[in-house]
């Protein structure tokens, strides 16, 4: 029932409200004395070099893409795990086929050297 999720709603309200309150309070109470050093982007104490808006390597994108694909595979495993006893051998075969097809994709990515970070 949707009413079972009321605690989740309360949790979300607190999770959003608390940081909003803290940031609002610190902006009201805290003194503001900006100086060029203070407004500089913080990079572990090292002077920042160049723009922070650099283009990311496309390698990150492939990793994210693989993550999405195998995330969806895991999502399909959840409902399957709930009823795989009722499905019997048929369930093992259909999920086996699904995983084998995706495993071929993983092997392809592996062979193409996507998993290595040259």
């Amino acid at each position: 029932m949707p009413s079972d999720y009321f605690p989740v709603f309360v949790f979300l309200l607190i999770a959003v409200g608390f940081p909003v309150m803290i940031i609002a309070l610190s902006s009201i109470v805290g003194p503001r004395k900006p100086s060029p050093e203070k407004l500089m982007p913080y990079e572990c104490g090292v002077d920042p070099i160049g723009s922070a808006r650099k283009r990311l390597s496309v390698k990150f994108y492939i990793v994210a893409m693989l993550f999405v694909v195998f995330d969806i595979e895991a999502i399909f495993l959840y409902p399957w795990a709930v009823i795989f006893k009722d499905l019997g051998v048929f369930g093992v075969v259909e999920m086996g086929l699904f995983i084998v097809i995706l495993f071929v994709g993983l092997i392809y990515a592996w062979k193409k050297g996507v998993l290595e970070w040259e």
Binding site: V58, M65, V69, E94, G105, Y108
Partner: peptide, 28 residues
């Protein structure tokens, strides 16, 4: 999903593998 709609479910894996291959071909 795993009885009446088993074919669309299996085709999903083809769609996902196409996404993997497409991303690799475009970026490598």
């Amino acid at each position: 999903l795993f009885t009446d709609w088993v074919l669309p479910f299996e085709i999903t894996s083809i769609l996902l593998i196409a996404a993997i291959v497409g991303a690799i071909v475009l970026t490598k």
